[in-house]
Design a protein around this nucleic acid. Structure first.
Lengths: 129, 129
DNA sequence: CCACTAGCTTACCGAAAAGTGGGTACCCGC
DNA sequence: GCGGGTACCCACTTTTCGGTAAGCTAGTGG
């Protein structure tokens, strides 16, 4: 176990093990999981595994390219499991790994909260774009 | 209160109140708070308010432009409070609003978990870039 | 009196992300 | 044999992101 990021916040210079340090590898993964589509894909797969086409229809507005790219990225990071049945027509199932499920449990409250907060706000949340 | 995003996941078509729908306004805010620098700034401000220069030094690698842009965005979304004492040389304090603090409590576990997971992983987490 | 500081803003430009349109392979139903 | 469905990949273009550099204000140290 490593230091809490709270310790980092106390210090003037953050330790290299937290994403506040520019050379920390966690920044890369953090970028992946907080990417525009990455969040939605992980949350979508949190409930149940889905096929390619299902995901594409479900995460509205994502292009095929971005879906493929996002899935490959998340697979590379060990969050998503890709299972291709060798059948024709092709059928590929995507699901979360154990690590992906852990991530989902952190992302779901975030998405839920943002969604709720925006919906609840009477005055527009943003003054400018 | 609105529907849980879980209901959305059960349905074939997600309701317009969740970020799965392409026209949902929460997508915009979600993009802000999950942006590369947005996450780090909110988490940094979660512990204590900071001045411009402090933040700039603390969130390593962020350019002045990006810091200003991120802060303006988060201020527009109501997450960050900007207090400029009219003194010269200028002194500006940034802190989280109540809403910002709520957000921080969701982001901290995420950052912590990613940081821990990456640090704990022996084999490289990502197969490809 | 000149440089230096803090906290920005704006203009400019290259890089990277993301959208578009096409193609592929294979089989099925008509 | 033609079109449609599935799950992609590749090339091209557009859009956005993000970094560099300069400028601005006003007081302060040398």
């Amino acid at each position: 176990m490593q230091e809490s990021i709270w310790n980092a916040i106390h210090a003037d210079e953050p330790p290299a093990t937290t994403p506040f340090a520019s050379n920390c590898p966690s920044r890369v993964v953090l970028d992946h999981v907080t990417s525009k589509w990455g969040v939605l894909v992980v949350v979508a797969l949190s409930r149940r595994s889905m096929r390619w086409g299902e995901l594409h229809r479900y995460v509205e507005g994502i292009s095929e390219k971005m879906l493929a790219q996002t899935l490959r990225l998340l697979e590379g990071d060990g969050f998503v499991l890709r299972e291709s049945q060798g059948t024709v027509p092709p059928r590929v199932d995507y699901s979360l790994t154990e690590r992906g499920r852990e991530l989902g449990e952190l992302l779901i409250p975030l998405v839920q909260w943002v969604s709720d907060t925006v919906a609840r706000t009477d005055q527009p949340l943003r003054a400018s774009a």
